[in-house]
Design a protein around this nucleic acid. Structure first.
Length: 442
DNA sequence: TCTGGGGTCCTAGGACCC
DNA sequence: TCTGGGGTCCTAGGACCC
């Protein structure tokens, strides 16, 4: 039996922890560049704000309905997420952290009253972090996700489901008729793994509710759709196809990209941006003790600006030897950038993706590019020195703040950059930055 | 004026091989 | 008129997730 613990409107709830005056008000958290809404409080949802809706389409609500918009404060959310995961994880022997606001717990072999435990999880997470959660239980991960959705909806919209399912919902304890009733009352698009495209195709084919989907023949689904959807159908039928993954493998690719605060035309500014992205990606790379065998750089104009000439290009740059060294990665990224840059365009976004990842120790390696012979002592020592240098740099940046040490082409301070993103509405980093810690007065 | 960022998995199709 | 039958590997693109 699995549980899915999910923070309600997570980013909005994080903001409310330190600004209780926002409780009960319609609020949204905006994406980087304050571009679109990526989290909405229930009150904002009730105003009709859609997920990922562009801010300029809804900003009138600020004036007319008191909608409060905040820039995303990912340092705050990441820190509260860690605390929430710790609190929730204390209830079961195994936990899979699935996203910033969700974790699966494995209750297999644990003999407790699950619904009561679900309420205890809610209480503990709320007391330890201030974040409200809902908890769904099911014999498969897909059913636990669905249970969570039902718990959330029942809590938010009284009358949508029987009120006993609000906040904590255990699909595993229901008799067949009771379960079928809930599945029949839920739209097929709510199922984990059914997105917009497949959802529309299913509805066209007359599969409108979760119950309709659960009653399909898996083999037919495999032929008409895919093995992915086939697994989903089986999971809805209570047959476990997706296991708990409590030790996620190292990432196979690491990406850092941003839209710019305003259009960028000069190569120098792009060099700065790409330097930053490659450095940031390299930090993540070293964090998982990997090295990259190649990297990809891309730049592009804004597809939303129809009046602008459009250009989009990318290039993959192989590295002579896999590395985690920021200087080497940045140099390669900048070389790639210079190869694809064209003058006369208004660039809106750029990014760097590290690919062909492998464990670091292999990369310091014994093999060279041809023949597989040992490299000489000199290159090996150099590789070791680079690794040490990077470790020192990461330690300094960890201690004194991101950006304390940078590679050469990184350019100006963040607030002077031509390309920096817009974040006019960011709240303080209450829990991760000494200068921004809240002060309590007696 | 104004539209996020970071991942995963699967499949189809082409290149290449014998 | 008419053009094999596998197999592997790689890449691009589509679908999904939050």
């Amino acid at each position: 039996m699995f549980a899915l613990v999910d923070g309600n409107n997570f980013y909005c709830s994080c903001e409310r922890v330190f600004r209780p005056s926002l409780v009960g008000k319609p609020i949204v958290v905006l994406s980087n560049n304050d571009g679109c809404a990526i989290a909405r409080s229930n009150e904002a949802k009730d105003l009709g704000v859609k997920m990922a809706q562009p801010w300029f389409q809804i900003r009138d609500l600020e004036r007319t309905h008191g909608l409060v918009a905040l820039s995303a404060n990912f340092q705050l959310y990441g820190d509260l997420s860690d605390r929430m995961m710790t609190a929730a994880g204390s209830f079961a022997p195994r936990q899979e952290i699935y996203s910033i606001d969700e974790s699966f717990l494995d209750f297999t072999g644990v003999n407790v009253d699950l619904v009561a435990t679900g309420h205890e999880i809610h209480e503990r997470v709320l007391r330890w972090t201030g974040i409200p959660t809902c908890v769904g239980f099911g014999p498969t991960k897909t059913l636990a996700k669905l249970a969570n959705h039902i718990g959330k909806t029942a809590e938010r919209k009284p009358g949508s489901y029987p009120s006993r399912f609000a906040r904590v919902c255990n699909l595993g304890e229901l008799a067949k008729e009771g379960l079928d009733e809930l599945l029949a009352a839920t739209a097929v698009g709510e199922v984990w793994g059914v997105g917009r495209r497949i959802g529309a195709q299913l509805v066209d084919a007359g599969v409108k509710t979760v119950l309709d989907l659960a009653r399909l023949d898996p083999a037919t689904v495999r032929n008409r759709f895919s093995v992915v959807l086939e697994k989903t159908v089986r999971e809805l039928q209570g047959i476990q196809c997706i296991g708990l993954d409590d030790a996620p493998a190292a990432k196979q690719q690491i990406m850092c990209s941003r839209s710019f605060g305003k259009p960028v035309t000069r190569i120098d500014d792009l060099v700065e941006a790409v330097t930053e992205f490659a450095s940031r990606a390299a930090e993540k790379l070293r964090g998982q003790e990997s090295a990259a065998g190649a990297l990809m750089v891309f730049i592009r104009t804004s597809p939303f600006r129809a009046q602008d000439a459009q250009y989009s290009s990318s290039v993959t740059v192989p590295l002579a030897r896999p590395t985690g060294d920021s200087n080497l990665l940045v140099a390669s990224a900048v070389r790639g950038l210079r190869a694809i840059y064209r003058e006369g365009f208004r660039y809106a976004k750029a990014g760097v993706m590290l690919v062909d990842l492998q464990p670091q120790e292999l990369a310091q390696g014994e093999l060279d590019l041809f023949g597989g012979h040992m490299v000489g002592e000199e290159p090996k020592r150099e590789a070791r020195d680079r690794t040490k240098l990077m470790a020192a740099m990461d330690a300094v940046n960890q201690r004194y703040g991101r950006g304390s040490l940078l590679v050469g082409s990184a350019g100006l301070a963040a607030d002077r950059r031509a390309w920096s993103m817009k974040q006019d509405r960011r709240t303080p980093r209450y829990t991760t930055c000494w200068e921004e810690m809240p002060i309590a007065r007696a």
